[in-house]
């Protein structure tokens, strides 16, 4: 497996002529059409667009959760479209942190155990895993809620646990699918502050799908998708 190396001269994520078509009976639905995209290390990029425009599909393809119909997705030195299912699974464990709209925490596990999950796929000792989990939970401000179950936490706290889970294994980039979509404005702002902090303090690369213009405002670059085509790129630099 190719390793991702930090390379400021080369984009971290390079997408070329990416297309995704679904079949429903005899009908072909083209969700993404010849999409090209470059994202650098440490960037905070938002994808906006109406429902069905292909935002989540793009995120799934970038995260190796789905495979494109055609085109190339190069992340670091890895061409992920050429990886087998098994290789993709292993690649995801090392390089991608996922944050979902509904947090997707395992309800029967505590905050600590949820955050520890990605570390179970590493060779870290139990003691080291504990240190990493405590560090991740303290970054998101939940060091005192480690042994709470998701049902004992507020929505904003649950999302912060999910963020801790996403960053605990120090992945190359984070994929956020509507991370504030299920939160009130105050909690949403806390989450966006946290994501911004991850960029500033830890140089994380974040790709975020959102319907919320206020959330998108926080990102460095906003990309608009419509009917599977990138129609506009708004760069704030």
């Amino acid at each position: 497996m190719n390793e991702i190396k930090e390379n400021q001269t080369k984009s971290l994520i390079q997408v070329r002529n990416l297309s995704k078509t679904y079949k429903r009976g005899n009908e072909k639905i083209e969700v993404l059409k010849n999409l090209n995209l470059d994202i650098n290390q440490g960037e905070f990029v938002s994808f906006m667009g109406p429902s069905g425009s292909g935002k989540t599909t793009l995120l799934n393809l970038l995260g190796g959760l789905d495979v494109p119909t055609s085109g190339s997705v190069r992340i670091g030195d890895a061409e992920i479209t050429s990886l087998s299912g098994k290789q993709l699974t292993s690649w995801r464990a090392r390089h991608v942190g996922f944050i979902f709209q509904l947090y997707n925490l395992i309800p029967v596990l505590t905050a600590f155990q949820n955050v520890e999950l990605p570390l179970l796929l590493t060779k870290l000792s139990k003691q080291d895993r504990k240190k990493h989990v405590e560090a991740a939970l303290s970054i998101v401000g939940l060091g005192n809620r480690m042994h709470h179950y998701p049902r004992q936490l507020s929505g904003g706290q649950e999302q912060r646990v999910a963020i801790a889970r996403a960053i605990v294994s120090d992945p190359s980039f984070l994929l956020c699918d509507e991370p504030t979509g299920d939160l009130d404005r105050s909690s949403a702002n806390e989450i966006l502050d946290l994501l911004s902090r991850l960029i500033q303090e830890f140089s994380k690369t974040i790709l975020m799908v959102t319907h919320d213009p206020i959330a998108a405002e926080r990102s460095k670059k906003v990309l608009h998708l419509e009917k599977g085509v990138l129609i506009e790129a708004q760069n704030k630099d």
């Binding site: 699974t89 995801r92 464990a93 996922f98 309800p107 999950l117």
Partner: peptide
Amino acid sequence: STEIATLRAIGFSE
């Protein structure tokens, strides 16, 4: 199913 998919997304194998 969502929990299982989350575990798969995190990197747990089939």
